[in-house]
């Protein structure tokens, strides 16, 4: 189970990185095509979708690296028991909010499909397709939060992905 979940977070993170590369490729294509006199409609819209995929698909992966920021001032100044309780409450709260986000993200993509919602730009993309990245990414974030919540409830320490926290940029 652990191996599968970690694989899921990493897979989602890898796809997010592809989204980042896609953003670069789409914006660059837009720049290069102009002087060549080629009209490639929709590169700007595709860049936006690729960026969205990058941000949403990385949600759980970033969470499991401990890089979504929060104020841990109070957490750090409490004793181990109170700290565990606070951790549990913030995870539970996060799970509720992320649950709503995931639910509505899935609903948005589903409804875009049902409405036949099409982008208004030159790209004319059926919107449910790019919105899948939000649906998938937020659901994986929800899974990651439930994962941590369950472990905390059982009294175990939530696992970070290997390699997390080794960023050299950190001043500490």
């Amino acid at each position: 189970m652990r191996a599968f979940l970690d694989f899921l977070y990493r897979l989602s993170g890898a796809l997010a990185a592809v989204g980042m590369v896609g953003t670069l490729v789409m914006v660059s294509t837009g720049i290069v095509s102009r002087p060549l006199g080629i009209y490639l409609p929709g590169t700007d819209d595709y860049a936006g979708y690729a960026m969205a995929a990058c941000g949403f698909l990385a949600l759980a992966y970033t969470f499991k690296h401990g890089e979504h920021i929060r104020v841990s001032l109070v957490l750090e100044r409490t004793g181990p028991r109170l700290r565990r309780a606070l951790e549990w409450f913030s995870l539970a709260g996060a799970t509720v909010v992320a649950g709503m986000l995931a639910w509505h993200a899935v609903h948005l993509a589903w409804e875009s499909h049902a409405f036949g919602d099409v982008s208004q730009g030159v790209d004319a993309t059926p919107l449910w397709i790019p919105q899948l990245s939000m649906a998938f990414g937020t659901v994986v974030l929800l899974i990651a939060l439930v994962d941590d919540l369950v472990l905390t409830t059982l009294g175990r320490t939530p696992a970070r992905l290997a390699g997390a926290g080794a960023e050299a940029a950190r001043m500490e």
Partner: peptide, 15 residues
């Protein structure tokens, strides 16, 4: 975009 093409000009995407 189509009109610009038919006018012989070059359509360009700018937000």
């Amino acid at each position: 975009a189509r009109m610009i093409e038919l006018m012989g000009a070059q359509p360009v995407t700018v937000q």
